[in-house]
Design a protein around this nucleic acid. Structure first.
Lengths: 200, 200, 200, 200
DNA sequence: CATGAATGAGGATTCATTCAT
DNA sequence: CATGAATGAATCCTCATTCAT
């Protein structure tokens, strides 16, 4: 091997290019140029364009899962655990805007890109939220009426849509702290004011 | 199919085809076949493929906005108004799976597809949520700390992600009522149990 | 349809190009240029490059079979029938050098080009020879020891190899009459001189 | 495989691979794998892919020529000499099916593959037949009307086409003895029955 | 001598778009 | 207005060849 880390360089380059142009508009030669290698070299490391997209997901999400799992080990208060997930997710998305873009737009159509791809790693990722909620219910701090499988979607969807704004230059950009605090506030205690609840 | 005008038939056909195959994978000839017209005829009604995608959005979202606005006119309780938005949105997404798919996946990359397209109609749609929240704050029923522009994203993201599952056959399919009720419960009163709140 | 006979024009052009460059070296754009159409137009008439090669065979051989069959109908002397086949074959090969080249070189590897293609039309063509020989045996003019299925190969091989020289500029070019007369002389009465036979 | 030299191993491997896949479809890496060496090693022994094909011919045909020449030295009856050529050729083709395939299909397009290559070795090979026929004419056992340069093609073509069937699994497979005997019978004494000749 | 990672030119095929009918 | 045959630009991927190790 003449140069090291070709695989990693391709992943990084692809993430960037997919984010900028989108999967379909991105050309293999764009990725190769970004990674400063020849077009053909890409095919020494990946089967085809789809394979690159899937690998971008898998590798980054796997890293994120490990990171989050590590942080959650030290905590058993479900409220704080949700906070950790939110902060970690938003930080990751803000840090790697390219990957964020890929998650937010390409993720949605991956199943159309690669019919066989079942995206189990991503499911494992959002199931962390379901687990936290379930744990909270067992500890009696989260309502029993909540369906964790539904709530995990709502929570992830909220985070995802909020972080999506960071990749669109149209709106005010909130900080990770603001966004994370607002989402937690909403999900934990609700939009309603305490006094209005009493009157219900 | 009724003898509707060609324009509408193309929109309907395109929505279906984009949903099934995705914007990039969909071919003009697929849309033409679905609409039972010749390929060239499409160009009498639309400038190009991008134009069709944008029109699909604009027309459907515009209809949805009108529908929601109409319903909201009769109501001024912000809690109930949020419920109306949620139910309307989820119902529309469940009813027109094709459009849902387009919103959920193609919408995300529209700004890459058509750089000039700024998607103001879609912004108007989710701004309905911001308006409701703002109204709630003025009436004193929603917390002042909530930033409407952030919360609107969280709320829409939650709805969107929950409804997205309906287009993936992997998970349990909840009803519109279940999903809407759960999301409202979460957003209005929070995940935490009343007793746990007291102890905070 | 704006211009007629695109199909035929592509076949003619492809025959020429395949003959000149060989199947693998020929580019689709060469064929398109030769046929004075756009590259993409070829795909309105043929599935792919292989399909063109097979079609070149099938169509020309089919024509040749009809021609030969027609001529043979009027004759029932097996010796003369062999002569008709030889003359027709050699004439066709000399007239359409391009097709001759394709038969002689590409035919041999067609089964490597298209695994599924079984080339039954070509088999039907050389089976004409087997039929003639068989008929000759029934009439008692051809030896019973001859195996028609083997002899058909020998006869066709002789014709084919002799006509192959016409496409190589290295050697003396015989006329169709010379070649046909020589091959018939050899196959009908043998190389040996009558007197030498008596001494055997 | 014995520890033979690399050159020979490449030739053997290439013969096999060319036979199976054809020259154009064969990849250098296929040959390298078959020869159990690295791709790059091939270029220490051959200039390029064409060079390998030519070498495959040259070396095998040269061997065959020597073999046939040796056998023919001991014989001066032209009839038996033709028999020796036929038997040797067919035996060689049946023994080395891979080489047979290469001769039968790739040989035909070699002049397109390598314009400069004039294939004189192959010409020397079939000229053996011309020489035998010429010798027969001088001895008065072969007809004077026969043109040796044409007859050599007919004879070789017959052998070639008959042996070609061995590489196609569609038809009855004759033994070398059957095939050789039939071809000799035909070429020496002709297809016609002795009695039919008298009546001519 | 041997390796095999890297190269990058080349080509079949697709499909949005045009326009003669 | 409608058609659909024709266009040809665009791109993924292959693979012969090179060369640093």
């Amino acid at each position: 091997m003449r140069a090291v880390n070709k695989h990693a360089r391709i992943i990084t380059a692809a993430t960037k290019v997919f984010a900028k142009k989108g999967f379909f508009t991105a050309r293999i030669s764009d990725i190769a140029k970004e990674a400063k290698i020849a077009d053909g070299t890409i095919y020494l490391y990946f089967d085809n364009k789809n394979d690159i997209l899937i690998s971008v997901f898998e590798e980054e999400i796997t890293k994120l899962i490990e990171l989050v799992h590590n942080d959650l080990k030290k905590e058993d208060n479900p409220r704080k655990m949700l906070g950790i997930f939110a902060t970690r997710h938003l930080t990751a998305m803000k840090k790697n805007k390219y990957f964020a873009e890929v998650v937010q737009s390409e993720l949605r159509q991956t199943h159309k890109v690669v019919k066989e791809y079942r995206n189990t790693t991503f499911l494992a990722y959002i199931d962390i939220v379901a687990d936290i909620i379930h744990q909270g219910q067992e500890q009696g701090v989260f309502r029993q009426e909540i369906i964790p499988d539904l709530a995990k979607r709502a929570f992830f969807g909220a985070l995802d849509e909020v972080s999506r704004v960071w990749n669109i230059s149209l709106e005010t950009h909130y900080t990770v702290e603001e966004a994370s605090q607002q989402i937690l506030l909403t999900f934990l205690t609700g939009l309603e004011t305490p006094q209005s609840k009493k009157t219900l």
